[in-house]
Design a protein around this nucleic acid. Structure first.
Lengths: 205, 205
DNA sequence: TAATTACGATACTATTCAGTTTCGAAACTG
DNA sequence: CAGTTTCGAAACTGAATAGTATCGTAATTA
């Protein structure tokens, strides 16, 4: 895996490089990627949004592709931020409570980014997998943990297909925002749980 | 929905337009889209692959975007076998029977095309929605019809959330092939039905 | 202060590509 | 045949845009 931090000679002379600008650039790149995709994003846009110049970008990254690569890695890294899972004693409320802190709207942008990078991903498969794992992995882990707890409580049977259920949640969220353009909101999520997922998990023969 | 067939004056004089070339162009466009995506595809590529000229393309379509739109619509239409829906008297087998003609050979390439169409979607939202509806619409219609039949038979309750179930099917299929790269096979589909969807539909309170 | 490096801004180069035009040949009609 | 339209091929135009170079200014250090 390539590292975000570069080996910097870090000169002792002259004006210091403003490293807060690094992340501002990555943030701007992600915002533009979410809206326009890899081909739609131009280096001038990134420079303009950060009120900097193209020279400043190319002083940090040798090419657009490598800037985008680091932006994706940065985006994935900055996503994990949950220390304690909800524990309401009830699977439905646990899952719903997870939506709020994990904030579907927040990861909405990541999904939109992923959706618009098809051509870039086919050329950089490895990075695509890293980013994809970074985005979906933690979320799946959380959901799986909540469902395993529900099994321990006897709320759902032990042979319930938890992996499939986790995938359904992620698939629905992705599908709505990628192909439909509309976010999969809290109400939709509740309907999915109440109408399909929870009855399905509980009454599996 | 816009129609694939254009209003053609269809001149009575001069050399006739070769309409077999129309579909050869659309087919070539789909092949290139599946490989390179919207931005990666150039009109020169399409002309070269069909051994024709760009003028021939622009005699038929006013822009690349509209050629791609028609290619997408054509792609979705070309796999539809709407004549006779399966009728096994059993929702599970009905849904599974639909997978064979629909999901196997054709829709894998279709989804690969969709996966690489991110930038197109952002630049031509309107057209992209038409194409997306053309791809997912018929499929949803089939599934909905099969489920409504199941309600009439009393196999699932009348208040079952059929729309949500249809979306889950499509979402899972898309998610697997777009972000995972691997198609959602018949076995996976059967597991989704048996472990989640059918129990969910039947036992909804 | 003098040297050095980063900064934002702008201009420049080279390439790619959508869309247009032109052209000679082929096909069709009356 | 004469007129008309399509065909494939190629050249051309104009707009983007990745990447480079330049420049005056700001920050930092010795």
């Amino acid at each position: 895996m390539s590292e975000l931090k570069k080996a910097k000679p870090e000169n002792t002379l002259g004006r210091k490089r403003d490293h807060t600008l690094d992340t501002r650039i990555l943030e701007a790149a992600i915002e533009i990627l979410a809206e326009l995709g890899f081909d739609g994003m131009t280096m001038d846009m990134v420079a303009a949004r950060t009120k900097s110049g193209k020279a400043t970008l190319y002083r940090r990254w040798p090419s657009k592709a490598e800037l985008v690569r680091d932006a994706l890695i940065w985006m994935s890294q900055s996503s994990v931020e949950l220390e304690h899972l909800p524990d309401t004693g009830n699977l439905r409320d646990d899952l719903l409570a997870l939506v709020k802190p994990y904030s579907l709207e927040f990861s909405e942008r990541k999904l939109r980014v992923l959706a618009k990078l098809g051509s870039f991903f086919s050329e950089h498969r490895k990075i695509a997998e890293e980013a994809s794992a970074g985005i979906f992995g933690p979320w799946t882990d959380f959901n799986r943990t909540l469902m395993q707890r529900a099994i321990k409580r006897g709320e759902i049977p032990a042979q319930a297909d938890i992996e499939m259920a986790c995938q359904v949640i992620i698939a629905m969220t992705s599908y709505r925002s990628i192909t439909q353009g509309q976010p999969f909101g809290r109400t939709d999520y509740a309907a999915l749980l109440d109408h399909i997922l929870l009855p399905g998990l509980k009454h599996q023969q």
